[in-house]
């Protein structure tokens, strides 16, 4: 299994990369290569041109803002795990990233690569939807921002134009004291998830749900927000009964199936993962300090 021939470019700057992308009709961006290169080796993809952005300056920054954290597209997954900013401001992402593949694949795998590959089972797109991601797309024509709903169009299909490249993602940092949980089921650690769930919970001073997100991964073509479950939880005290009722709404969302996980089984996994993620998030959330 060897990659088919391709023209190789290794730009040193973003402008150079965008110029190349604008002029090449059949080009793919090569980031960490942990998904694209297997596809090349298996001849599932055969682009005429690869634009290697591993040496483009400035794409690997983690920037902390007041209510957003911006991750450059080339931030390695291993760097996310190690980042104190990510652990403190985006605990959901920190927990999700630790479940991607293996330490050695995370050494190369990137935030932007995972988002653009958009595998239904991938952890980062699910976490990004929960964190109201804004995706920054650049081209020689300019820069625009896409919401996750505009970006994740379908199975491994993004809303990027052919001349556009993802350069960063801006994630909502929830207030201090919120709880996060990411749970996934795979036959062996590091395998593709058969179902995953991401949950964020903020409680008010009385211990009622003040804000909540529940997202499922690996159950549909793209990550899925379970708004009905969120609505059920809002304003109420999340005890085990309520969490179980809300998590039960995850099962019917499942549309993906394969011989390993038929619909009925994946639906049960989705419910179980939603319950685990919500339970973890609620358990980690602090009641807001009541104003004096």
């Amino acid at each position: 299994m060897k990659a088919p021939p391709f023209d190789y470019h290794r730009p040193a700057s973003l402008d150079e990369a965008l110029g190349l992308l604008a002029g090449q009709p059949d080009a793919r961006i090569l980031a960490g290569g942990q998904s694209l290169v297997p596809m090349l080796n298996m001849r599932l993809a055969a682009p005429a041109t690869l634009i290697d952005i591993n040496r483009v300056d400035g794409l690997d920054r983690i920037e902390e803002g007041a209510d957003r954290v911006t991750l450059g597209a080339m931030v390695r997954q291993r760097a996310l795990e190690a980042s104190p900013v990510v652990r403190r401001r985006l605990p959901l992402l920190a927990e999700a990233v630790a479940q991607i593949g293996h330490p050695v694949t995370r050494n190369r795998g990137t935030v932007g690569g995972s988002l653009c590959h958009l595998d239904p089972a991938a952890e980062i797109p699910a976490a990004a939807l929960a964190l109201d991601a804004r995706l920054v797309a650049a081209s020689a024509r300019g820069t625009r921002r896409l919401a996750m709903e505009e970006f994740a169009l379908g199975m491994m299909t993004t809303g990027l134009e052919p001349d556009e490249m993802l350069v960063a993602v801006e994630l909502a940092a929830w207030p201090e004291g919120h709880g996060a949980g990411f749970a996934e089921f795979a036959r062996r650690p590091g395998d593709f998830a058969m179902a995953s769930a991401a949950a964020l919970v903020a409680l008010d001073g009385a211990g009622r749900v003040d804000a909540v997100r529940l997202v499922l991964g690996a159950v549909a073509a793209t990550p899925l927000r379970v708004t009905e479950a969120e609505a059920m939880l809002m304003g109420r005290t999340p005890d085990t009964t309520l969490i179980a009722e809300a998590a039960a709404l995850a099962g019917p969302c499942v549309t993906l199936e394969d011989p390993q996980a038929p619909l009925w089984y994946r639906a049960r996994l989705a419910t179980a993962m939603a319950k685990r993620a919500l339970t973890a998030a609620v358990g980690r959330a602090d009641r807001k300090r009541v104003a004096a």
Partner: peptide, 25 residues
């Protein structure tokens, strides 16, 4: 395709799958 780990080498001190990295990189 990056699953078995047999080809792991260090590049600038970081362990990588050498089947998923082109030599030119």
């Amino acid at each position: 395709h990056g699953v078995c780990g047999s080809c792991t080498v260090l590049v600038d001190g970081t362990a990588v799958r050498s089947c998923l990295l082109f030599a030119v990189q």
